[in-house]
Design a binder for these strands. Structure first.
Lengths: 162, 162
DNA sequence: ACTTGATTGTTGACTTTTCCACCTTTTTGC
DNA sequence: GCAAAAAGGTGGAAAAGTCAACAATCAAGT
């Protein structure tokens, strides 16, 4: 961080890197908080939260809302069931899916943890203004979109197409 | 994304989540680009880059500049050495550390990949204004800092100290 | 109704990442 | 100087994530 000749370029270069760092820090923070409350990991907690908030309660929508890979989602859901956090019922409208029902255990966990995470969120955004937050949300969208492109002009040493 | 009653809260709640998603997208993008050029992964590339740019060349500073966990750093460095990208020399000032020297192979890889990643960066920030970028950088710093706090008021159910 | 193609979820192998306990070197306090 | 403490590095184990194949289900067109 000492020598900074081409600061503009360097800053540009560091954007994904800084986001990675930020993500890592946020992740670690969430992990500490969540694991202090029980035996759920991040992914499992997200599933519980989405259902507890009444956003979704069937597998595919929950999976998409949480952004978890379907393979891992299946495993996490299995773990949640085994630990007694959820009960899975058949879903009549689509028999491939399941309806996820939270148990008391899950609801209690959510009631305890929810407020703590809410406070964490408040703490996170506390020093940002609404305008800044708006910029951030917009930028995240834009960047996520720009991150889709993978075919930059590649001199292609020995690369073949798929 | 459909039902959005308490949008403000929900948005606040989703910040770490959205950052996680963005990070995931950026990561995937970088992975595709980098792996199209050779056998380096992200972490390894970052090490090479930091050294190639002349920012640092001893282990601990490089590790901190790249933000890689020390355990993984050790393994990545070992891999780099084995693949012939770096040569490790003893560091006289502190014999726990090493001096990292790049080989021609690493320098060539950096010369080829650098420009492509530069273009990627330009592509990423292309749709953002300078003001927005400034807000982003500032916010990342602020958020990363806020992410350090892990001791939120925890009612501590049946948690014991270790 | 039947068939084809697309979704969804599950599973198991595999890779990658993260965590942790240990060892060496360096630094600090006496 | 020497012992204790701190920091760096290493390697193994565990967790998380990825990938590909498969079975069940649904949607659509014939």
């Amino acid at each position: 961080m000492t020598n900074s000749d081409e600061s503009a370029i360097r800053l540009g270069l560091l954007l994904p890197f800084q986001i990675a760092q930020l993500h890592s820090a946020l992740n670690a923070q969430a992990k500490v908080i969540i694991s202090a409350y029980g035996d759920l990991n991040l992914a499992q907690w997200r599933i519980v939260r989405v259902v507890a908030l009444g956003i979704e309660n069937t597998t595919t929508p929950v999976r998409k809302a949480t952004g978890i890979d379907k393979s891992q989602f299946s495993k996490m859901l299995g773990a949640l069931e085994q630990k007694g956090y959820v009960v899975l019922h058949p879903y009549e409208n689509d028999k491939r899916q399941h309806v996820i029902e939270l148990t008391d255990k899950a609801r209690k966990a959510h009631e305890r943890l929810g407020p703590v995470l809410d406070e964490r969120q408040r703490h996170l955004v506390a020093t940002l203004t609404e305008d800044e937050l708006a910029v951030i949300y917009k930028s995240i969208k834009v960047l996520a979109n720009a991150a889709q492109k993978t075919d930059f002009d590649i001199p292609a040493p020995e690369q073949e197409e798929e």
